[in-house]
C-alpha cells in the first residue's frame, strides 16, 4: 500500500480540525484578550479574580468535587460486590447500571426536579407518612443530587471495568500470603483500580465543574456556578469578551483536572456495543 497516497485521505479531516476546532479556539483567546473596541487588554483574562467570579469558581469546584466523591463512594462498593459475589449475569447487571448514560440528560434532570421540588413526589410521600418535608430545591444540595444522578454512569463504567478486570489469582495469592480482608482491599484492590477511579473522576468532575443547565433547573437561577455566569455573559449581558475570558479560565481548570486524574476514556460508551 502506498503510504503517502493513503495519508492524503486524512486531508478533509485535517481541514475540518483546523477550521472548526483550532480556529474557533483562537477566536476565544482573541476575544478574551481584547475589549469591546478590539484593543488588547488583560482585564478579561484576569476577570476570574473579581470576587463574584472567584466565588462562582470556588462553588463550581466544590460542588464538582463533592459530586465526584459521592460518585466514587457509590460506585466502588458496587464494583466490589459485583466482583466478589460472582452473580450469574454480571454483564447484564452492569449493562442495566450503565444504561441511563444513553438517556437524554435534560430528561434526567427533569425527572430529578419532579422528585425533589417543593410540591414534588418525595415531599408528597413524606407528608402522607407524616415525616415532615424536605426543602432542598434551589439549594446547592439539589444541584449535587442532580450532578450525581446525571454523571454516576460515567463513574460506574470505568470503575466496574477496572475492578472486574483485576485477576482473582492476585487476590488469592495475597490471601495465601496472609493478607486479611482489609489488606486485600488497601494493598491490592484499591491500588489496582486507581486508573479506573481516576478516569471516572475526570468524567464526573469536568462536566460538573463546567455545568450550567443543572444549576439553572434545580437551582432556580439563584445559585451561580461559573458556567452560569459564562452563559449569561453570552446570552443576556452580551459581554462576549468577559465570557471568553472566563471560558479560558475554565479551560485551564479542565486541563489541570485531566492532567491530575488521567484522560477520560471517551470510548466508554462503546461498552454497550
Amino acid at each position: 500500500m502506498n503510504k503517502n497516497r493513503v495519508q492524503v485521505l486524512s486531508i478533509p479531516y485535517i481541514l475540518w480540525v483546523i477550521g472548526f476546532t483550532v480556529i474557533p479556539l483562537i477566536f476565544v483567546v482573541a476575544k478574551a484578550a481584547t475589549n469591546a473596541e478590539g484593543d488588547f487588554t488583560f482585564e478579561y483574562l484576569l476577570a476570574i479574580f473579581d470576587p463574584v467570579h472567584r466565588k462562582a469558581l470556588l462553588l463550581s469546584v466544590c460542588l464538582a468535587f463533592i459530586s465526584s466523591v459521592i460518585c466514587v463512594l457509590i460506585s466502588y462498593p458496587a464494583a466490589l460486590i459485583l466482583k466478589s459475589a460472582k452473580f450469574k449475569d454480571t454483564k447484564i447487571i452492569m449493562f442495566i447500571m450503565i444504561l441511563p448514560m444513553w438517556m437524554n440528560f435534560i430528561l434526567r434532570i427533569l425527572a430529578i426536579q419532579l422528585l425533589i421540588s417543593k410540591n414534588g413526589v418525595i415531599n408528597h410521600l413524606l407528608s402522607v407518612l407524616h415525616l415532615g418535608q424536605i426543602d432542598i430545591i434551589n439549594t446547592p444540595i439539589a444541584i449535587v443530587i442532580g450532578m450525581v444522578y446525571d454523571y454516576l454512569p460515567y463513574m460506574l463504567l470505568p470503575v466496574l471495568n477496572c475492578v472486574l478486570a483485576i485477576p482473582d489469582d492476585i487476590i488469592e495469592a495475597g490471601k495465601d500470603l496472609g493478607a486479611g480482608k482489609f489488606h486485600v482491599l488497601t494493598k491490592i484492590l484499591i491500588p489496582l483500580s486507581l486508573s479506573g477511579i481516576g478516569s471516572g473522576i475526570t468524567m464526573v468532575f469536568v462536566p460538573s465543574m463546567t455545568e450550567f443547565v443543572i444549576a439553572n433547573i434545580l437551582g432556580g437561577g439563584k445559585i451561580q456556578l461559573l458556567g452560569n455566569i459564562i452563559e449569561q455573559e453570552f446570552s443576556v449581558s452580551m459581554n462576549w469578551n468577559l465570557g471568553s475570558g472566563l471560558s479560558l479560565t475554565l479551560m485551564i481548570f479542565v486541563l489541570i483536572t485531566t492532567l491530575l486524574f488521567g484522560r477520560n476514556s471517551a470510548n466508554n460508551r462503546n461498552f454497550v456495543l
Partner: peptide, 30 residues
C-alpha cells in the same frame, strides 16, 4: 504525525462542552 493527529482528535472530547459551544458560536457569527 499519528500522535499529533490523535492530540487534535482529543480536543473536542476533553474540552468542556460550554467552551466548544462558545468557540464555535464566535466563529459562526463571523
Amino acid at each position: 504525525d499519528y500522535k499529533i493527529m490523535l492530540f487534535f482528535t482529543n480536543i473536542p472530547l476533553l474540552n468542556a462542552d460550554i467552551v466548544t459551544g462558545i468557540a464555535l458560536m464566535l466563529w459562526f457569527v463571523k
